[in-house]
Design a protein around this nucleic acid. Structure first.
Lengths: 333, 333
DNA sequence: ACACATCATGGGAACGTTCGCAAACATCAA
DNA sequence: TTGATGTTTGCGAACGTTCCCATGATGTGT
């Protein structure tokens, strides 16, 4: 059916070995021959069969990316950026969705693991032991999760949070509320608490809730009781819930209350008013996670399971405040 | 490195053929033997190597889905639903992004075509000829594009549009504006024009523009000049731009102007006010497109290129209005 | 001119699986 | 018993590629 290396070989009057080399190690074949082969290949519309390639042992040329929820607006730009990056480096990306269900994560991994050269696990819920077992079997990079000995991309909100605190302080705010909607080991709350205290801003924490729009709606009603003039939400979605409910309550944003989100998803840029938020650059994450995985793959080749690297690499991604219209001067009592 | 069928065979004391059959045709092997094999396989942690499988000719077990833009909030739920559907049917989904650039579409297709059993092309910009060539080489399903002879999933907005027109009519609106932001062969405008005329509603068309937030912002300023009391936008994103600018202009939605979006993306459900929109069910699209492709794949096996099917199948997906808070009674002048 | 290194090319095994074919064995009707 | 039929299993080729090894051609230093 499809055109094979053999047909190209006979068309160019050389052996299959030479054709193979013309593609995988072009400098090992004489330039005139190479050209003849390339022409014949183009003529016949030949392109190497990835299945045969990977069977022979050359890897799959595919990176696996497993995220909790593809439909979460935070991820699509990351997926997109990683695809672009990977393609430039000769890889394909296979994205999969563990559907936020811990039980599905292992099943998802099993489904893709044989089709990829390595895996990027986002906020994995697996135990450390399981992750180490996995890392012994194939190159692994974790994001938003810390496991000693496994390459990691860490997202640091501290810069953005500090800027947010300064931003609010400069606007004269004194009392703030943080809506916590995270079940993660390292809640965003702790870091926020510290940053705000350092600037002598009072911060009450609500929750933890689920990271949903309704959480923001609900939490918004509690803000007044705390006599707070600023709200910082676990993410943009929750912040939009706050915006929504504030409008319902007749509370004006930002005149009466300022609201800050986290992630700078599309939501933040199209809300009314525009949502001030802490941006985490999707391209940066994608590029670093992808590169880190590829690095791990190429290093690991042929000696997987050689034990945990004493110093596994990690990359830290920064953040910064994107001021929009949802924050402003604190009301003068 | 990985455990192969041979090791399972010797562990279970049978030949490799029998192990293979135990997995691919379980009823052809005696139940006691089968159990012994399955136990051995589980013990060793064996799972078949997809590369070897597909090299042998069994297909890749992967469906390719190419969308214009993964980051467009319309697509993630579709991708997610298709993955779920495909996994249930034993397939994996490889999603790729043509980045809205026509030149990239062919490159993207080339990159994935050897790794998949078939392709779903969303709103392809390829010529009919190219698409036919492609369909001769591999199973193909197009969505949002009509090409005679190629299996197709069609999205029909007419039901939703009719409901929208009735909805506005019931609220007493007379003059409406449609913001056209489509470069597609079949603009959404024509269908809308007809439905509104049928109900004796006047409809002015603005554009065509690009389907972006800023388009809505810009178009919103033109609405007053048309003395219209209702706006229907090309999609939710544009509608949100309208909402945004109306707020800026001090025009209240829905008191002064009603706004309707299309697609029912996440954006519509979290905007303030909640956006009335025409819903296209992502699961329905995903399921039908996936099933249609799988059907084409299994039918086509072994006889690709047998020419264009005289009657290629197509599926039509409906739509319906989701009333939210952005529409209401027309202002009493 | 000779031994020797270098370079370009070809031959062929191997990767892990599936599947057509045939062998071995059991079952059953006549 | 005999042949026919069916069931369960094993053998081995084939899928398309890569890469080790071998071969011949072409230099290079003495």
């Amino acid at each position: 059916m499809a055109v094979t290396i053999r047909e190209v070989a006979s068309a160019a009057g050389v052996s299959v070995s030479t054709v193979s080399r013309a593609f995988t190690a072009p400098d090992q074949v004489q330039s005139t021959t190479r050209q003849r082969i390339l022409d014949a290949a183009a003529e016949l519309g030949y392109s190497p069969n990835p299945a045969a390639r990977s069977l022979r042992g050359g890897g799959t040329g595919t990176l696996g990316l497993i995220v909790p929820d593809i439909a979460n607006p935070f991820f699509p730009p990351i997926i997109k950026a990683m695809q672009a990056r990977a393609r430039r480096l000769g890889y394909t990306v296979l994205v999969s969705d563990s559907d936020e269900r811990e039980a599905d994560e292992l099943a998802t991994i099993a489904a893709v693991s044989k089709r990829v050269d390595g895996l990027i696990l986002w906020a994995s819920t697996l135990t450390e032991n399981r992750l180490h077992e996995l890392a012994d079997q194939m190159p692994l990079v974790v994001v938003n999760r810390h496991v000693p000995g496994i390459p990691e991309v860490r997202i640091s909100l501290s810069a953005g949070i500090t800027q947010a605190a300064e931003h609010l302080k400069a606007y004269g705010h004194r009392r703030c509320v943080f809506i916590n909607a995270s079940r993660a080991e390292l809640s965003r709350g702790k870091s926020i608490q510290e940053s705000f205290e350092a600037l002598d801003l009072s911060l009450s924490e609500l929750g933890p809730y689920e990271p949903r729009f309704e959480t923001g709606v609900h939490a918004a009603t509690l803000v007044a009781a705390h006599e707070a003039t600023a709200v910082i939400a676990h993410n943009d979605l929750v912040a939009l819930g706050v915006l929504h409910q504030m409008a319902n309550l007749g509370v004006s944003v930002p005149r009466d209350v300022s609201v800050i989100g986290i992630d700078d998803t599309l939501l933040a840029s199209v809300s009314t008013p525009g949502l001030t938020t802490i941006r985490i650059d999707p391209e940066e994450i994608a590029t670093h996670a992808g590169d880190l995985l590829i690095e791990t793959i190429t290093q690991t080749t042929g000696r997987i399971g050689s034990g945990v690297d004493a110093s596994s690499p990690f990359v830290e991604i920064g953040s910064r405040l994107i001021p929009r219209a949802s924050t402003g001067p604190a009301p003068t009592h």
